[in-house]
Measured scan of single mutants.
Amino acid sequence: MSIQHFRVALIPFFAAFCLPVFAHPETLVKVKDAEDQLGARVGYIELDLNSGKILESFRPEERFPMMSTFKVLLCGAVLSRVDAGQEQLGRRIHYSQNDLVEYSPVTEKHLTDGMTVRELCSAAITMSDNTAANLLLTTIGGPKELTAFLHNMGDHVTRLDRWEPELNEAIPNDERDTTMPAAMATTLRKLLTGELLTLASRQQLIDWMEADKVAGPLLRSALPAGWFIADKSGAGERGSRGIIAALGPDGKPSRIVVIYTTGSQATMDERNRQIAEIGASLIKHW
């Protein structure tokens, strides 16, 4: 067993022997301040990774656009098919120029040779490549099948209805392509620590998230040296922004954090800054 596999296998073990965790309302004060600064709703939840206990939450059962955070769930569904012998990570998928959609920095470079399922998941999570996500959605049967996968996990809230990039439209009061912070946090925890996926697939999923290259201005910008984070960000229309993450000190994750916002007129930089400040408060009061 590799060191990384050992780390993920012992996530519940280490967490069980940690000192009790206590909620700190100071972080919620910052979440509410972010709402004021952005002029928009902000949803927040913080779960203990081992027990699933909610440590703090704000608007945990209000719907927010998922945006690209759905790509972690998508690759979880792909990995479940791999575990069941219905898919192979090494299978190569070929596609054409007509398949390319807006923001496809990886797939646009491989029109000639195609990409493997493993490479597509890596591109979808680490670079948020939209064509990679659409190609992977095709392998599982489309958005409705991802929703069905989530329902089978016990998540009857999260739903995907459309493809990239239309799913980022974020129309107010439109339930399409949305989740709730509580539902997303619980589902992410199941994917990373539950028995739904094999140990190898859980490790692969967290490795992809740990290698995320496009979430630097968010929670990662607030992390002290030595902290662990595996995350996936999302951005959408109407001032929408979000991030889902597993993080913790001492090089291992111990909490799940989900943050979503929508309806702001603020710039992307300002949305990023507010999420980073929430992260800084979380870490300060850990």
Results as ranks from 00 to 15, higher is better:
Asp174Gln: 05
Asn152Asp: 13
Ala235Ile: 15
Ala245Ser: 12
Lys32Trp: 06
Glu46Val: 10
Ala182Cys: 08
Pro253Ser: 10
Leu74Pro: 01
Leu47Cys: 03
Ile206Asp: 07
Ala246Glu: 06
Ile54Phe: 11
Arg241Leu: 15
Trp286Gln: 12
Met180Thr: 11
Thr112Val: 05
Gly236Cys: 00
His156Met: 10
Tyr260Cys: 10
His285Ala: 01
Cys75Arg: 00
Ser68Trp: 08
Ser51Gln: 07
Ile256Ser: 11
Arg162Ile: 05
Arg81Pro: 06
Ile206Arg: 07
Ala215Gln: 14
Ser233Phe: 13
Ala235Val: 14
Pro165Phe: 07
Ser254Leu: 07
Phe149Ala: 08
Arg41His: 12
Gln265Asp: 10
Ala34Lys: 03
Glu119Phe: 01
Thr262Pro: 04
Leu28Ala: 07
Thr69His: 09
Leu73Pro: 07
Ile45Lys: 14
Pro253Met: 06
Ala200Glu: 05
Ala124Val: 06
Asp161Leu: 03
Tyr103Gln: 12
Ala182Asp: 12
Ile125Leu: 08
Thr147Phe: 09
Glu102Ile: 00
Lys284Met: 09
Pro105Asn: 04
Ser80Gln: 08
Leu223Trp: 03
Thr261His: 14
Ser68Phe: 07
Val117Pro: 06
Ser201Thr: 05
Asp207Ile: 06
Thr186Val: 09
Gly226Val: 06
Ser254Cys: 06
Asn134Gln: 01
Leu111His: 05
Leu146Asn: 02
Ser240Met: 07
Trp163Leu: 14
Glu46Gln: 10
Ser201Gly: 03
Phe149Arg: 04
Gln86Arg: 10
Thr187Met: 00
Ser254Asp: 11
Pro65Lys: 09
Arg202Ser: 09
Gly76Thr: 04
Arg41Tyr: 09
Ser201Val: 03
Trp227Ala: 08
Glu35Leu: 11
Asp33Lys: 07
Ser57Asp: 00
Ser96Glu: 07
Gly226Ala: 06
Leu223Pro: 08
Gly142Cys: 00
Leu192Phe: 07
Gln203Asp: 04
Thr131Arg: 08
Asn272Gln: 09
Leu223Ser: 04
Trp227Ser: 06
Leu89His: 03
Ala84Trp: 03
Asp33Phe: 14
Pro172Asn: 00
Asn173Lys: 11
Pro105Val: 04
Asp36Ile: 12
Gln203Thr: 02
Asp161Met: 01
Arg220Thr: 03
Leu196Gly: 04
Leu150Pro: 00
Lys32Asn: 11
Ile256Leu: 12
His151Cys: 04
Gly154Ala: 09
Met153Cys: 04
Met67Asp: 03
Glu62Tyr: 09
Tyr95Arg: 08
Glu108Tyr: 07
Ser233Lys: 12
Gly194Asp: 04
Glu62His: 10
Ser240Gln: 00
Gly142Tyr: 00
Thr158Cys: 14
Val42Thr: 08
Lys190Pro: 15
Val31Arg: 09
Thr107Lys: 01
Val82Met: 02
Thr27Glu: 14
Arg241Trp: 15
Leu150Glu: 01
Ala183Gly: 07
Leu73Lys: 06
Tyr95Glu: 14
Pro165Gly: 00
Ala280His: 14
Gln97Phe: 05
Asp48Thr: 07
His285Pro: 02
Val257Gly: 14
Asp83Ile: 13
Glu35Thr: 08
His94Glu: 14
Pro172Arg: 01
Arg238Pro: 00
Asp231Asn: 14
Gln88Leu: 06
Leu199Gly: 09
Glu270Pro: 15
Thr138Trp: 12
Gln203Ala: 05
His156Leu: 09
Ser128Asn: 14
Ser240Leu: 10
Pro60Leu: 03
His94Pro: 12
Arg59His: 09
Thr193Arg: 00
Gly141Lys: 03
Tyr44Leu: 03
Leu47Arg: 02
Leu223Asn: 05
Val157Ile: 14
Met115Lys: 04
Arg91Ile: 04
Leu111Met: 08
Ala185Ser: 09
Glu46Pro: 06
Lys252Glu: 10
Val29Trp: 03
Glu26Met: 13
Asp177Tyr: 00
Ile206Leu: 10
Gln204Trp: 00
Leu55Glu: 06
Cys75Ile: 11
Gly114Phe: 11
Ser128Tyr: 07
Pro60Lys: 08
Val29Thr: 13
Glu210Trp: 08
Ser233Gln: 15
Arg189Ser: 14
Arg241Ile: 11
Met115Cys: 01
Asp48Gly: 05
Ala185Asn: 11
Ser240His: 08
Ala222Phe: 13
Leu160Asn: 01
Gln37Val: 09
Thr178Gly: 14
Glu210Gly: 14
Ala132Val: 04
Ala132Ser: 08
Glu210Cys: 12
Gln37Tyr: 10
Val117Cys: 01
Asp177Gln: 08
Ile93Pro: 00
Val78Pro: 04
Gly85His: 14
Gly242Val: 05
Ser264Tyr: 02
Leu205Gln: 05
Met184Ile: 11
Asp48Met: 07
Ser80His: 09
Gly114His: 11
Met67Phe: 09
Glu270Phe: 15
Asn152Tyr: 15
Leu49Asp: 01
Met115Thr: 05
His94Thr: 04
Arg273Lys: 10
Met184Ser: 12
Ala182Leu: 11
Ser233Trp: 13
Phe149Thr: 07
Gln204Asp: 02
Thr126Ser: 10
Thr179Glu: 14
Leu47Thr: 04
Val258Lys: 01
Gly114Tyr: 09
Phe149Leu: 08
Gly114Gln: 11
Gln37Lys: 03
Ile54Lys: 03
Leu197Gly: 11
Gly239Ile: 14
Leu136Lys: 03
Lys190Val: 14
Leu47Gln: 02
Asn98Ala: 10
Leu146Pro: 04
Pro25His: 02
Asn50Met: 12
Pro143Arg: 02
Ala200Asp: 06
Leu28Met: 05
Asp83Glu: 07
Tyr95Leu: 10
Asp48Ser: 06
Thr138Asn: 13
Leu167Ala: 01
Ile259Val: 07
Ile244Ala: 09
Thr131Lys: 04
Ser104Met: 07
Leu47Ser: 02
Arg241Met: 15
Leu146Ala: 02
Trp227Tyr: 08
Asn134Met: 03
Pro165Cys: 00
Gln274Leu: 10
Met127Cys: 09
Val78Glu: 06
Leu160Lys: 03
Asn272Lys: 12
Ser57Asn: 04
Asp99Asn: 13
Gln203Asn: 11
Pro253Lys: 02
Pro65Met: 07
Asn130Leu: 10
Arg118His: 12
Leu150Thr: 03
Glu35His: 04
Phe64His: 08
Leu219Lys: 13
Ile206Pro: 03
Phe64Gly: 04
Asp212Lys: 15
Asp231Ile: 14
Lys53Ala: 10
Ala77Ser: 07
